[in-house]
Write a protein that binds this DNA or RNA. Sequence first.
DNA 1: TGCGTTCGTTAGAAGTTGTAACGCACCACG
DNA 2: CGTGGTGCGTTACAACTTCTAACGAACGCA
Lengths: 217, 217
Amino acid sequence: MTDTGTETPRERYRAQVRAEVKAHAWEQLASAGASALSLNAIAKRMGMSGPALYRYFANRDELITELIRDAYRSLADTFRATAADGSGDGDLAALAHALRDWALQDPHRYFLIYGTPVPGYHAPDDITGIVHEIMATLLDACAALPSAPSTTAFGSHLEGHRRWAGDHPAEPAALHRALTFWTRLHGVLSLELAGHFTGMEFDPALFFAAELDELTR
Amino acid sequence: MTDTGTETPRERYRAQVRAEVKAHAWEQLASAGASALSLNAIAKRMGMSGPALYRYFANRDELITELIRDAYRSLADTFRATAADGSGDGDLAALAHALRDWALQDPHRYFLIYGTPVPGYHAPDDITGIVHEIMATLLDACAALPSAPSTTAFGSHLEGHRRWAGDHPAEPAALHRALTFWTRLHGVLSLELAGHFTGMEFDPALFFAAELDELTR
DNA sequence: TGCGTTCGTTAGAAGTTGTAACGCACCACG
DNA sequence: CGTGGTGCGTTACAACTTCTAACGAACGCA
C-alpha cells in the first residue's frame, strides 16, 4: 500500500506513535466527546509526559483535524465499497444502510463530521476532496436511478447552480435526489444519535426505513 | 408577569445578576461556541473576580443548562406565537419559516439544542415539558391538515407507539407528518448552519422551501 | 441598633494547553 | 569505526481553566 521501502526507521517510529496517539484519541473521544479530548491524558496513558506529544502534533487542533480526516476517509471508503459490490436492491438503499451502520458504529465519529461545528476551525483543502468523493459516489447512485425530468422550482434552480457537483453528468432531478438523500437521512440519524428520540418509543430504524422508502420510490 | 411584589431586594438583585451573567454568556456563546464558555471571562467582563459567580451558578453545567432551557423556552414561545396568529398560508409553512428564522437568528442557540450532545449531560425534567409543548404545537398543526389514512409500515407502527404524542388525538398520518417535518427541516437547517453547503452555490432557502413544499402537499 | 445572611474577595488545589531548555540516544556520514 | 547532527523525551514554567475554602464587609430584617 504505502512505500515502506523508502521509510527511515525514524519515520516508521514516528508514524507508529502518531497512530497510537490517534487510537487513544478515538478511545477517549468515544467515552467523553471531542471537547474532553486531552493531549495530556493521552500522553499519560501512553506512559509519556504531556509535552512529548507536541513532537507529533503541533497542537490539539491538528490532532482533531487528523481525526476528522480519518473519519471522512472512513465514510468515503465505506461508501465506495458499498457502491462497488452492486447488490440486489438499489444502490441508494445500500448506501443508506451503510451510512446508518457507519454512524451507529461510532456516534462520536459521526458528530465529529456532521455535528456542531468548532467555532474557529476551518477544514484543510484535502478534506474537501474526500467530501467530493463521497458526494460523487452518491451522485453516481442517483444518476443510475430512472427519474422524470424535474419540474420543481428548486430543480430548475439546481440546473443553473450545479458547479458543486463537479463535472458529474447527472440531471437536476438526480442532484435534487442526492441532496435530499443527504439532508433527510442526516436529519433522522443526527436526532437519533443525539438521543432526541429516547423518550418516544417508536423504532428509529423503521422511521429511517420509511424516509429511505420515500427517497427511492 | 412575575410577582415582583413578594421579592426581597436581595432576590431582585440576585435575579438581575443571574440575568446579566446569562446575557454575557449568550454573547460569548455566539462568538466562540459553547465549549469556550468561561465563567472566569464572564466574571471579568462584569468587573468581578472569578469565584464570585459561583454564588449564582453552582457550576458551569448549571449555567449551560439554564441557557438550554432558555433556548427551548424561546423556541416554544416562537412556535406558540406563530401558531396563534393563524395567517393565510397553512400553519405548517408558518411554523417552518418561524423555525428557520429562529435558527438563523442565532445558530449557536440552535446547536445548543439540536447539535452534538454534551457527553455526560442529562437535561432536567422541566425541559422535557417544554419539548412536549413544542411537539404539541407541531402536532396541532399537523392534525389540522387533511390527510389520507396512513397505509405505510411506519404509519401502522406509529399507531401502536404513540405514547410520545401524549394524549394528542392525531391520526398516525399526522404523527408521521410531524416527525418528518421535524427531521427533514432539521436535516437541511443543521447542515446549512454548520456550513456544509458553503462550497456549493445553490440557495439553501430554496432547498428548505422545496422540502417544506413536499411536506405540505 | 444589633445580628445573621449573603456577597465578593483572595488563596489555593488540580486540571488544561503550549513553550523553553536541557540531556540522551539514535542514525548517518565521513 | 568514531563523531556530529537530528530528533525524542524529560522537567520547568507560564497562562489559562473550574471550583473549594476561608475571610471580611455590606446589607437588610427584626
